[in-house]
Simulated assay, not measured.
Amino acid sequence: MDVRTELGEFLRSRRARLRPEEAGLPAHGGRRRVPGLRREELAQLAGVSAGYYTRLEQGQSPNASDAVLDAVARVLRLDQAERAHLYALARPERRPVRRVRPERARPGVRLMIESFGDVPALVMGRFLDVLAWNRMAHALLAGHLGFHTPDRPGERPNVARLVFLDPHTRELYADWPRKARSTVADLRLISGRHPGAPALSSLVGELSLGSPKFAGLWAAHAVGDCGGTTRAYRHPLAGGMELMTEFMTLPDDDGQRVAVFNAEPGSSSEAALRLLAGLV
């Protein structure tokens, strides 16, 4: 994935979703040749020349100032996650070339998720690989896979791959389309933080070929941070449940996150988790 191409496609997708009248421009009759705002209209509203904005959209302005990026974000009505993505694409971080080693969860992090007992918890790598999970997270999300697969880098489950290519996972989520959208939006945000990463490019290529749904969502350039949420599950052994998911970024581990799944105390979902705990 070329970061300049990504920047242009992202900005064009954001322009296309904004009608001129929403941006305070007069609405003229007749069909417009392009959907949403034209480049020159966005440039005018952001207070920059049309030529400068065109160069920005083409990835030819790596030194764009905070004022310019903030003005473009304001006109396009970007949310916090989209604004962060814009900055990441407009100013790609120059990472030193180094040998890529398989990611691992630190021993202390592994002990932490194991200490959660009957609360499902797992560790995700920077590109959504499952690096470790406790018995409950394995039983909740992927009991059809071997428990020790995260310990083998070549066989590790990947959250995005499970969501789009694994039929068991598709059945697990009661609102699978919502889960699919949030997974792609999270992966888009990650791609801005790690431009050109071979492992990520390979994953996106595999998912695009294997899932037309993924390909369509990826082309839409939706961006979103994977924050706390509540999801409904249809577990094949424990039945239906609603679980609250919280994510904790590990500051010393280059994008690794811990996901923890909890049920409302006293709810039927808590009872379903207890039932699942008795089966593992």
Results as ranks from 00 to 15, higher is better:
1 M>W: 08
2 D>L: 13
3 V>K: 00
6 E>D: 12
8 G>F: 03
11 L>T: 04
13 S>N: 12
14 R>A: 12
15 R>N: 11
18 L>W: 06
19 R>E: 15
32 R>G: 12
32 R>K: 12
34 V>C: 13
37 L>Q: 02
40 E>P: 06
43 A>Q: 01
43 A>M: 07
48 V>T: 03
56 L>C: 08
56 L>H: 10
59 G>H: 13
61 S>E: 14
63 N>K: 13
63 N>H: 15
70 D>Y: 01
73 A>D: 06
79 D>T: 09
79 D>E: 11
80 Q>L: 15
84 A>L: 12
87 Y>S: 13
90 A>G: 12
90 A>L: 11
91 R>W: 06
91 R>K: 13
95 R>P: 08
95 R>E: 10
96 P>N: 10
98 R>S: 14
101 R>D: 14
103 E>K: 09
104 R>M: 09
104 R>F: 09
106 R>K: 02
106 R>S: 01
107 P>E: 12
118 D>L: 14
119 V>Y: 05
120 P>Q: 10
125 G>H: 09
125 G>A: 05
131 L>M: 15
132 A>T: 00
133 W>A: 00
134 N>A: 08
138 H>G: 10
139 A>T: 00
140 L>N: 01
143 G>H: 04
144 H>Q: 15
147 F>C: 05
149 T>M: 14
150 P>R: 02
150 P>N: 11
152 R>M: 06
155 E>W: 13
156 R>S: 03
158 N>I: 01
159 V>Y: 15
162 L>S: 04
163 V>D: 04
165 L>H: 08
169 T>H: 06
169 T>P: 08
173 Y>W: 07
174 A>P: 12
175 D>Y: 03
177 P>G: 08
178 R>F: 06
182 S>P: 02
191 S>M: 00
192 G>K: 10
194 H>V: 02
195 P>Q: 11
197 A>W: 02
197 A>R: 03
200 L>F: 06
201 S>T: 15
202 S>G: 14
207 L>K: 01
209 L>E: 15
210 G>K: 09
216 G>D: 15
222 A>F: 02
224 G>C: 00
229 T>P: 00
230 T>V: 07
232 A>R: 10
233 Y>S: 00
233 Y>F: 14
235 H>M: 12
238 A>M: 07
239 G>D: 08
239 G>K: 05
239 G>I: 11
245 T>M: 06
246 E>H: 10
249 T>S: 15
252 D>I: 03
253 D>A: 15
261 F>Q: 04
263 A>D: 06
268 S>R: 14
270 E>W: 05
270 E>T: 08
274 R>Y: 12
